[in-house]
Design a protein around this nucleic acid. Structure first.
Lengths: 148, 148
DNA sequence: TTATTTGCAAATAGTTTGCAAGACG
DNA sequence: CGTCTTGCAAACTATTTGCAAATAA
């Protein structure tokens, strides 16, 4: 955990960004809530518990910065909010999501299921793939069982 | 073209929605600009050319309605705007997109490349897939050539 | 006729920005 | 120290909503 925090600190320093307490608190929240898909507002409220003086604008600016550094990915599940998802260390690609249309839960798939598909896209469409976004909408295991 | 318009009219009637000139004008714009990925504002401006008295709120309401009827899909490429994309007739799934990070162009892939992946998701994660969203980010053919 | 639908304007919600004060390196 | 960063409030943008008037079926 601390290890990953240090790596992110290094990333910031490498680009000569300052490491402020606000930025550190924000990163800590993201690490602690890695499973979740927090909105800026969510992050703000959680950071506020540790560092009550932080402002919402700073959270937005920090998340934007981390997004530029590719430490987090900014995603959008179609409700009007952007969500921020920590990228796995060394992950080449964004991970996939399973969004349940009944209970709204979001599951993550870390495996890269798209290697073959990317080959097709590169070969048949001549498109040089850098990254991808894949979300499945459907019914999660728990809701399927509930329905029976 | 008229055929598809009629089908959409039927869809509306089947759910006992009224067929107003505003709704028809909106659908016509979507059909004419099927290749594009129009925002609500884009649609509004185009509809206004034919029916100047239409209001932006009506366009939003119509697009929302068409989205509920699964006539259009609401998508989000990460800029702050929702875009509306006509679903192909009888298409089970949303089509895929190739977004160029250099010129911003958006190409569509109609083939369903995800059948195998969906099987994996259903079998290994127990997730009952209803639909998917897949977008690749990368460099389009034209920009690759330009770079050499 | 009569429940829907519209246009307008005002309200919201999420996000961004200007700026003076504060703090990291 | 000087520049980067912050907090606050105001500005902005996309979208939604309330309501009285208009209209499709």
């Amino acid at each position: 955990m601390e290890h990953r925090l240090d790596r992110i600190k290094e990333e910031l320093h490498a680009q000569s960004y300052k490491l402020t307490p606000q930025r550190e608190a924000t990163v800590r929240v993201l690490l602690e809530r890695e499973e979740d898909h927090l909105s800026a507002e969510d992050v703000y409220l959680l950071v506020k518990e540790k560092a009550p003086e932080i402002g919402l604008a700073t959270v937005y600016r920090t998340l934007e910065l981390l997004s530029d550094l590719k430490v987090v990915d900014k995603i959008n599940f179609g409700d009007g909010v952007s969500r921020y998802d920590l990228r796995k260390e060394g992950a080449k690609h964004f991970h996939h999501h399973l969004v349940c249309t009944e209970c709204g839960s979001v599951e993550e798939i870390m495996d890269d299921l798209l290697e073959d598909v990317e080959t097709v896209v590169q070969d048949q469409w001549g498109f040089l793939v850098q990254d991808h976004r894949l979300t499945f909408h459907g019914i999660c295991r728990a809701c399927q069982q509930k329905n029976n």
